[in-house]
Simulated scan of single mutants.
Amino acid sequence: MTTDSTYTYQQIASAIEHLTSHYREQPSLGELAEKVNLSEFHFQRLFTEWAGVSPKKFGQYLTLEYAKSRLRDGYPLADAAHDSGLSGTGRLHDLFVTIEGITPGQFKQAGSGLLLSYGIFNSPFGPYVLGTLNNKIALLHFLNDGDEPETILTTAWPEVSLKNDSPAVQFLADQIFPTTAIDISGDLGNKLLKPLPILLRGSAFQLKVWEALLNIPEGRLASYDQIASAIGQPTASRAVGTAIGSNPIGYLIPCHRVIKKTGLFGGYRWGAERKQAMLGWEAARVEK
């Protein structure tokens, strides 16, 4: 006997299969909903619940990956856009900037003209390298003895040019680990309390995991299983752990707040001792 849950899964699986096979035709929401005999509203809600992203976003990722493959093969921008089912280079540009944070031209030119400014700063948890692209934080990596900041940066962003320019990114560093108390009553306080601009790129699954980490309040902890449930994939705790381990922006995307369900702290990309120090530091701040 087929349960409602199984039937719903079959409907969404059928829609994903159709979208994966026909994304270059840019099927509409109505077309996908009709394919599985659902209203557009009901289909949109169910698809998002089961896949973790909207049908539109799912199709955008498929389109972008295909366009990137064409650009890597040397196709002109216009041809890559047309072959991907887009109406022109404008739509391809919007897709790249929205998801990748760079233009298709910069991707095609392997980063020519794309400058990553960086600096090395101190924190309560040791030195770290902070990298920015277009005034957005693209990387925060804590440094251990022997680490080469340039190697770390080029591994994360191989297509960019590097510029060691601490003064250009100092203002952002001052907001991450402020060395003095901030008067939140004045204009400066309002400016500093705005969310920091972050530039992320990764798979759809990684982005969902990193977004879930941002919802863990300071001073609180979550397990890998809880994060997996939060993104709608309760059996994917192992994959969640892999995504957390590849987090490129330490502290700001608080992967240090995730522990094992047994209560053990578990590993940490930048060292277990540093993770313990962060959690203790945050607990003290919350208690105050």
Rank of each mutant, 00 (worst) to 15 (best):
L130N: 04
L133H: 07
K136A: 07
L140M: 14
L143D: 03
L143N: 05
N144V: 00
N144R: 14
D145N: 12
G146Q: 10
P149Q: 10
E150R: 15
E150D: 08
E150L: 13
T151A: 12
L153G: 01
T154W: 08
T154D: 00
T154F: 12
T154Y: 09
A156E: 09
W157F: 14
P158Q: 13
E159A: 14
V160L: 14
V160F: 15
S161N: 12
D165I: 11
A168C: 07
Q170D: 10
F171D: 09
A173C: 10
D174T: 07
I176D: 01
P178L: 04
P178C: 02
T179D: 04
T180K: 13
A181W: 03
A181P: 01
D183G: 07
D183L: 10
S185C: 08
S185L: 12
D187F: 08
L188A: 09
L188H: 10
L188Y: 13
G189Y: 11
N190P: 00
L192S: 04
K194T: 07
P195W: 13
L196V: 09
L196S: 01
P197Y: 11
L199D: 04
R201Y: 12
G202H: 08
S203G: 15
S203H: 08
A204P: 05
F205H: 06
F205N: 02
F205I: 02
F205G: 02
Q206E: 15
L207P: 05
K208C: 04
W210A: 03
A212E: 00
L213P: 06
L213R: 04
N215P: 00
N215R: 13
P217K: 13
E218G: 06
E218M: 13
E218H: 13
G219Y: 07
G219A: 10
G219H: 08
L221D: 06
Y224F: 15
D225R: 15
Q226W: 03
I227R: 06
A230H: 07
I231C: 03
G232C: 05
G232V: 02
